[in-house]
C-alpha cells in the first residue's frame, strides 16, 4: 500500500470512531464542545503519532512475549508527558478535559494501532498511519462535538449562534446527547455505505 493510502485510510474508510467504533468512552464524554473535541483530538493524535514512531523503531528489539506491557509503558509515558505539558501550557483545556487525558492510555485505538500496524511496519508507513488515524479520530470528534454544541448550547466554538433568546436542548451536551448523536451518525454512515453498494 502506498504511503498516501496509509494516510487516507484512517480518515473515512477505517475511521477509528465511525468505522471501527474504538475509543468510544472518551469520545462520548469530552465532545460537549468543539473546543474540547479539538483539544482531545490533538492530544490523542500527538500520543498516537509518538507511540507509532517509537514502536515502529523498536519493533525489532521488543521481545514478542512482552510486547503488550512494553507498548503500554510507552503509551503511558507519552500520555503523562502530554498531560504535564497541557497542564503547564494550556491550563483551561486541561481543566475541561480533566480525567479524560490520563484515560488516553487505555484508548484502545492507540494500543490497537501499535499492535496491528506499528509493530509490523517500518517508520514511514507508521507515521502516515498515525497521522491519518489521528486526523480521522479528531475529525470524528469535531463532527460529534459540533452537532452537540450547536444543538445543546447554541454555540459553535464558543461563539453564540442564535442570539440570547434561544433555548438550546440541554440534553445534547449531557451524556444521553452523546449516545443519540453517535447513534444517528453511525446510522447515516451505514445507510450511505448500504446505498453505495
Amino acid at each position: 500500500m502506498s504511503l498516501g493510502k496509509e494516510f487516507t485510510k484512517g480518515i473515512i474508510r477505517e475511521n477509528p470512531l465511525f468505522r471501527l467504533t474504538l475509543g468510544l468512552c472518551p469520545s462520548l464524554a469530552v465532545t460537549t464542545s468543539v473546543e474540547n473535541g479539538l483539544g482531545m483530538g490533538a492530544a490523542f493524535s500527538a500520543v498516537l503519532l509518538a507511540s507509532n514512531i517509537t514502536i515502529a523503531l523498536l519493533r525489532k528489539i521488543i521481545p514478542d512475549s512482552i510486547r503488550i506491557p512494553s507498548f503500554i509503558v510507552i503509551i503511558a509515558t507519552f500520555v503523562t508527558l502530554i498531560e504535564m505539558i497541557m497542564h503547564a501550557f494550556a491550563p483551561d483545556l486541561f481543566k475541561s478535559l480533566g480525567i479524560y487525558i490520563p484515560l488516553i492510555v487505555v484508548n484502545c485505538v492507540i494500543l490497537g494501532r501499535a499492535e496491528a500496524f506499528a509493530s509490523k511496519n517500518s517508520l514511514m508507513p507508521s507515521i502516515m498511519d498515525g497521522l491519518g488515524m489521528g486526523l480521522g479520530f479528531t475529525l470524528a470528534l469535531v463532527i460529534i462535538s459540533a452537532f452537540r454544541e450547536i444543538l445543546g448550547a447554541g454555540t459553535f466554538y464558543g461563539i453564540p449562534l442564535f442570539g440570547a433568546s434561544a433555548n438550546p436542548a440541554l440534553i445534547m451536551i449531557l451524556p444521553p446527547g452523546g449516545f443519540i448523536t453517535m447513534g444517528i451518525i453511525l446510522a447515516l454512515m451505514n445507510k450511505f455505505q448500504h446505498d453505495a453498494k
Binding site: 509503558v73 509515558t77 508527558l81 504535564m84 505539558i85
Partner: peptide, 15 residues
C-alpha cells in the same frame, strides 16, 4: 520512560 517523565516534569512543574 521514568527519565523522560522526570525531565519534562522538571520543566513543567514550576510553571
Amino acid at each position: 520512560a521514568g527519565l523522560a517523565i522526570g525531565y519534562v516534569n522538571d520543566i513543567t512543574s514550576p510553571i
